[in-house]
């Protein structure tokens, strides 16, 4: 499991970028900026951390970069694919084929086994997908858990299953929004370690967290405050 993926794709094809991205909400006549004129470029194959205090807009930036939220100003793109110049279906297809997601809660389907929860993210739920899911589970040290229901797994195990689910489509980018927030530190580090492994295989990892310790292995950390970029740089 140490082979490098994505060697057939160019850097430009796989670069994430926001250009003047703004995300504003109107609430009872009052405008709130979740993001304000954020421009950032994330070349592929690196582990990016997004940090900032609560309400600084770090999750909003992740959602804008992943196409889950459309910016109210500016744009976001992946390679040459500019989200707001495409249909919602095209952006959804991009998420399915090129991105993987890990959220604060694992969001596993409660009536499916761990293996089935992972296969859900495969392009086709066939035998090959099943075998791949088994390999990924084994790689993350979770052999024997494949037939367990989410209710039979610990919090850390559930989150690692969701990490495997994010890896199922061999995504160019894995977006993780506070993936360790609900876990103890030991399990948190195991999840981060699993995500960092994806960077080692050539993928891009973008992790939002408020816990700086979790980003010890990150290549670049982006700092946000009040929706504005305060710092971006290699560690």
């Amino acid at each position: 499991m140490t082979e490098t993926l994505f060697s057939d794709r160019t850097v430009a094809d796989r670069t994430l970028a926001c250009e003047g991205a703004t995300l504003e909400y109107s609430d009872a006549g009052r405008t709130t900026f979740a993001l304000r004129d954020v421009s950032v470029t994330l070349p592929p194959g690196k582990f990016y951390g997004i940090m900032g205090p609560s309400g600084s807009g770090k999750s909003s930036l992740l959602y804008v970069m992943s196409g889950l939220k459309e910016p109210t100003g500016g744009s976001a793109r992946f390679g040459g694919f500019v989200y707001n110049r495409n249909t919602e279906t095209a952006v959804t297809d991009l998420r399915r084929t090129r991105f993987g997601f890990v959220f604060q809660q694992p969001f596993l389907l409660p009536y499916l086994t761990a293996l089935e929860n992972i296969v859900v993210a495969a392009p086709l739920p066939d035998k090959a997908a099943q075998e791949k899911a088994m390999r990924l589970l084994a790689h993350l040290g979770m052999d024997g858990l494949e037939n367990k229901q989410p209710s039979q797994l610990s919090g850390g195990e559930k989150q690692r299953v969701s990490v495997v689910r994010a890896m199922m489509s061999d995504p160019d980018v894995i977006f993780a929004d506070e993936p360790t927030a609900s876990l103890d530190r030991k399990n948190g580090f195991r999840v981060i370690e699993a995500l960092a492994g994806w960077r080692d295989r050539g993928g891009t990892v973008v992790v939002v967290t408020h816990d700086g310790d979790m980003l010890a292995g990150a290549d670049t950390i982006i700092h946000l405050r009040d929706g504005e970029l305060t710092d971006e740089g290699d560690k």
Partner: peptide
């Protein structure tokens, strides 16, 4: 609803 939300987030079309 959370089941459908997560499926939508990971790339299942509305259709």
């Amino acid at each position: 609803i959370s089941e459908f939300a997560v499926l939508s987030a990971i790339g299942y079309r509305r259709s």
